[in-house]
Amino acid sequence: MERDGVVNIGRGAVKKADVELAVHAEGLVRKFGENAAVDGVDLIVRRGEIYGFLGPNGAGKTTTIRMLATLLPPSSGTAEIFGHDIARDADEVRSRVSLTGQFASVDEDLTGHENLVLIARLLGHSRKESKARSAELLAAFGLSDAASRQVKKYSGGMRRRLDIAASIVVTPELLFLDEPTTGLDPRSRNQVWDIIRTLASEGTTVLLTTQYLDEADQLADRIAVIDNGKVIAEGTPGELKASVGAGALHVRLADPETRPEAERILSNSLGAPMHLESDPAALSARVSDPERVSRALAELSRSGVAVTDFALGQPSLDEVFLALTGRPADDNENNENPGGKEEEVA
């Protein structure tokens, strides 16, 4: 898996015979006009693991997932899902995977119960079985009370849970979750995390995308970092963090005037350049050795620079990107696409 530009921080290449692979993609490319949304992605996901696909907005996460779920033909490259080619064996692939899209993939006009019955019927359950299955899932996801309410009246967290419930009407072997917690409040996010862990512990392979290193770290066995359609790093969360540094020190000063002085003192004692935040009283730095942090902070107070707040946190996605690419994760507006998929005139 050693190829140009990819920081290979994982174990070596996987021989196909060793483990059964849930996803095996090679050189996936998808172009929209001239612009390559996905630009040569190689991906190996082993059966049973939770795989995190980490990247900023517009990196190509959704496009990759849509190709793997047979919704979008690749411009070039190949992928196999449990050994079935996404182009030639699309039906075989579809009968093994489920997709929970970035934007709610349930019907907002219908009730929660009707949505699940609809999916159950489409998968081949009888009317009676479908109703029973729907009731069972609604109960398991804490949605029984909302069963006969239209989905458009659901909260974001409820909608997400229904969406995931719809994906496991028949337990899939591989579940794609596209940004399952974006926009959720912390409590709903934790519920979704619990659901994902339970699914995985019952044997479903999960491929999830996220913009949060924290989330990938919490859930994933392995992570690929994607940027501009390319995988720029791959490995376990530990390996990834090790390559990026222990984390970041964030400091807020009582007086913005003292920032230049604080910058000088901190960068000296941390031995690292300081990053000036857009907040005029805040600055941060990547740190490799937590020992030095306490010394640096002590130095600061000795010089009479008052600090209102400091935190030593896990590296943010921005910091991961800074470390891996030498530039911040670009989140430029023309990548922003909040209204849903852009349709091209075919």
Partner: peptide
């Protein structure tokens, strides 16, 4: 979300 009922919902699912 009762983890137990989720587990049983997962295991009772069969592909028709």
């Amino acid at each position: 979300i009762a983890e137990e009922s989720l587990r049983s919902a997962l295991s009772s699912s069969e592909r028709p």
